[in-house]
Design a protein around this nucleic acid. Sequence first.
DNA 1: AAGAATGTTACATG
DNA 2: ACATGTAACATTCT
Length: 283
Amino acid sequence: MPELPEVQTIVTDLLAADLTGKVIIDADVHWPATIATSPPGTFRRNISGRTIRDIRRRAKLILFELDNGWLLAVHLRMTGRFLLMDGVQAPDKHVHVVIALADGRRLWFHDTRKFGRFYLVDTPSVILGRLGPEPLDATFTAQKLASALAGRRRRIKPLLLDQTFLAGMGNIYVDEALWAARIHPLLPAESLLFAEIRALHGAIRRVLVQGVRNAGTTLGSGQSNFHSLGRTRGRNADALKVFRRTSQPCPRCKAPIRRIQVAQRSTHVCEACQRSDGGGMTR
DNA sequence: AAGAATGTTACATG
DNA sequence: ACATGTAACATTCT
């Protein structure tokens, strides 16, 4: 479930927990499929003894840069979480990887649905090579978005969700950005006017920055919903304008928010102010 | 208590 | 090559 703001929040918290410079002395894998790149025994051998040089985010991946040039990239998928444990508590049934540090702490990877994946590679491009641009990079301009959109006949929402087109957006922030830019999710990407692309570019950046500022979006109260390190909840849910607000009034025009299906994903839209016909403009 | 869930990918089909 | 749809992964949440 985590998208760019949630992953960024976790990275920030991992850095604040002072994990850089720490030595990994062991890794215990309880669900082999979590390790995507090798059998668990190979993973354990390859990561034991390594020092964590830095922790970064790219797209929705948490990147642990290791001292020998290898990279551990972790994708949380829907329900992955990290917990940093001090003592010797026994991991619960949803903890699939335990990383033991030389300072006595343990980093637990907790993942109820077991979709999360660890990629341990000596060639980072294998994992990072196909990703699209980072939406918060200074180099991602409205002009760049416009050229990328040109000639694309797909509908705008699935294109924004495509990580090879743009990195880090997910269902929440795409719905929020399209609402903010008054663009209907079903519009063909190539049909957007430049004024709309400029609005979309600004909206994408604003919703993501706000999500980061609010330390991510935690919906509901289930333990599988997003949490940063440990039990830390995000504060962004109250800032959402349309996501999971079906039937509630649009904050702009008071028409009820509708839930529709777009590319098999539930999609929240104000049919009154997110026009699918261009509002009479040539398109 | 059935359907949905913040994600990705492989495969089939057009 | 591009685009769309379905299924799969596995379990919990509403």
